[in-house]
Design a protein around this nucleic acid. Sequence first.
DNA 1: TTTTAAAGTGTAAATTGTACACTTCAAGCT
DNA 2: AGCTTGAAGTGTACAATTTACACTTTAAAA
Lengths: 249, 249
Amino acid sequence: MIIEPGIVNDSEIKATPLITDAKKLIDSYPLVPITVDCVIFGFDENELKVLLIRSDLEIFKEKWSLLGDAVKENEVLDDAANRVLRERTGMDDVYLEQVKVFSQPDRHPGGRVLTVAYCSLLNIEHHQLKKMDNELHWHSIKHLIDMAFDHQQIIDDCYGWLQKRIQEHPLGFNLLPEKFSLRELQNLYEAILDIKMDRRNFRKKFFAMDFLIDTGELEDDVPHRPGKLYQFDFQKYSRTKKKWSGIDF
Amino acid sequence: MIIEPGIVNDSEIKATPLITDAKKLIDSYPLVPITVDCVIFGFDENELKVLLIRSDLEIFKEKWSLLGDAVKENEVLDDAANRVLRERTGMDDVYLEQVKVFSQPDRHPGGRVLTVAYCSLLNIEHHQLKKMDNELHWHSIKHLIDMAFDHQQIIDDCYGWLQKRIQEHPLGFNLLPEKFSLRELQNLYEAILDIKMDRRNFRKKFFAMDFLIDTGELEDDVPHRPGKLYQFDFQKYSRTKKKWSGIDF
DNA sequence: TTTTAAAGTGTAAATTGTACACTTCAAGCT
DNA sequence: AGCTTGAAGTGTACAATTTACACTTTAAAA
């Protein structure tokens, strides 16, 4: 390497001088509007449901849409998603997780908008929908039609995410009442994974995990022998959860 | 329900009229600059590495930074991440996956910038770094210090993502040469998961999967008995890959 | 009291995971 | 050529987990 006269060390060789005005740098970046869209899953009548409203855009008249909103100035995305949930369902402290950003430039008819998809799981019994709002209600995940924007794609991705996550993390309990029977739990898994499971092995598995608390109570309103009601022991789970290490593909 | 005179059906009861001008709607949304940051993993000298440059901001002088850039007008995020990779490493068709958005308003000293983190896995041998650019080079993931922005956090999240993904999906092969010995493969897993594995059981597992093609070639340049070289059969994998169904938490 | 429908329960076989040690081979050295 | 070095390559017994499968019990409703 040839050292020019007067240059004494590496740092002086650098081509680009440091940027002192970070704000000015940012000002050169293109700006984009951001929204969050919540894929809110519920479980009812042994079916996985998703909460939708009618789109309020003329161009999507009669089509269905996820619950979403623009992200506010200086609002963290998680907060925005929680806000949307609160505004629509009245619920706070709902299970919520960021899943993916969707960025196709033509995904919104009004121009480019990025949207960050969030998955949320909530117990249908525990909340009162404000049905006034654009026919807000639950749709079976299996028979969706006429979705606005790229919302079908977003739901498909989030549903895949849920199928995977529910097997490695005890998310499912967020979809059930606080006290549930093993039959309800199994119905939930069967509905989400769209498979049939062996009842005895399913029970064996969950009892072996030892995260179910027997409440001593029994099901009510069933026209046959009632099942025991259990609660999930989130505390014990979080203390005990194993770290996972096994190659499998 | 009381029906007002003159109102004849449900659709006329609706409070909010449909929005005809989608563009105008979007214009009311706050605007944010977006960047992508690439966490580019490599594997060398039996260590997991990540590709970093010196920050070019005065405020982060001497600190290290991920490879990132602003997302251009109408650019899809995946394209932006691929562009960053191409510009910095000269490589196309690199494994790349979106991981997470980071949105803390104070994460950038110049003002609010959202960034979308991408993980990328590449074979260090296969590319030529343009070392002129801000001391671009590989850092052991285990001894990172002095990261700019929230890049330490981003790397931590992406490393966790990698540890999980590599166990359920054959990503690891992207980090190895096309032909590799089983020892190299095991070293890779041990480095990424930060655990020791039993050599015989490791072999048994991979041979049982039956995705390794024996090239008939042997290692070179080793001062002891050379191992066989294998290739991963991506084709067979994608034909055969099992759908995964086992509750485990 | 009988019927109905699901709750609740156990075992044997197969599969998978784990722990563990010696022989083989090529290269490098003398 | 023979010896040394160091990792490659290999198998088995045991434990743990997964799978397949059928009868008895229970409460409610008729």
